[in-house]
Simulated scan of single mutants.
Amino acid sequence: MGIAQFFLVFCSFLLVFVQGLDIPDPDEIEYIKQELETTVNSTVHLHCGSDIPTLFIWVFSRPGTERNEPLAYNYGQGSKLLALASSLGEISLLKNKTTLVIEGVSEEAEGVYTCQALYDTEDSPKVKFYYTQLHLQEEEESSRGSGSSAPDSD
């Protein structure tokens, strides 16, 4: 399934799914920003909150672009990984979680990862955007002890 087809299907599903929901005012949407440093061939865990949302989608944006490319999603029928994910390393989602795991991080993995999460709560739907800026360090830098920062776990 191509990117354009995926977005068409996802948007169609989203319209059907949220038809009976009142989408929150954009000022009520929560935006969580995180930064993470790693090296090529390492493993990283990108977090999308501590609660499992009703539906979510992970997208990726390369440095210098504003184009969001879908990586993975779950709209209630199990998680799906998309083709782009393989160019960033070995991608997986933790079972029963929204955490995106990249093993063997490639040089192409640097950029912004966004998880868009919709929570259908008793009070009203909640929308959260988790932005993780992934920086790649030179291996020499990491061996000098600059370390990596763990993302906020919400």
Rank of each mutant, 00 (worst) to 15 (best):
L46M: 06
F56I: 04
P24T: 02
Y31L: 06
K97H: 07
G111N: 09
N68D: 15
L81F: 10
L118Y: 05
D51H: 15
L81I: 02
S61Q: 13
F129N: 07
V105E: 09
L71E: 04
S149E: 12
S124M: 13
F10S: 11
D27T: 13
G2P: 02
T98Y: 09
F7D: 01
F129G: 00
T99S: 06
F56T: 03
D22Y: 10
L134I: 05
S153L: 14
S50A: 14
R62M: 04
L118T: 03
E140I: 04
L93E: 03
Y130L: 11
V59W: 01
N68E: 10
L118K: 01
L88S: 03
D27C: 12
L134Y: 04
N68A: 08
W58M: 08
T99F: 01
P125I: 01
I23A: 13
S42W: 06
D123G: 05
E122S: 15
E30Y: 06
G111C: 04
R62C: 01
G49W: 14
T54S: 02
R144M: 15
Y75D: 08
E141F: 00
K95P: 00
D22F: 10
R67Y: 08
D123F: 02
T43S: 02
S86R: 07
Q34K: 05
T114W: 03
P53H: 07
C11D: 07
F60V: 03
L36P: 00
E69R: 05
F60N: 07
E103T: 03
Y113L: 07
K95M: 10
G78P: 05
E107M: 13
L55A: 07
K80Q: 09
I29G: 00
R144D: 14
S42D: 13
T43A: 00
V9E: 15
S146M: 13
Y75T: 10
D152N: 10
L136K: 05
A4S: 13
G76R: 06
F129V: 13
V59E: 11
I32L: 10
Q77W: 11
E103M: 02
L118I: 14
T121M: 13
L93N: 06
E141W: 08
P125K: 01
P63G: 05
S146V: 15
P63W: 06
T65R: 01
P63V: 01
T132S: 00
L88Y: 02
A4E: 13
T65E: 14
F56W: 08
E35F: 03
G76V: 01
S42Y: 04
G145L: 02
T114V: 12
T121Y: 12
S142M: 15
L21Q: 14
P125M: 12
S143V: 08
S92T: 01
F17Y: 15
D123A: 05
D123Q: 12
N74Q: 00
D123N: 12
Q133A: 04
H135L: 08
Q77C: 05
T121G: 07
Q34S: 11
K128G: 02
I3N: 12
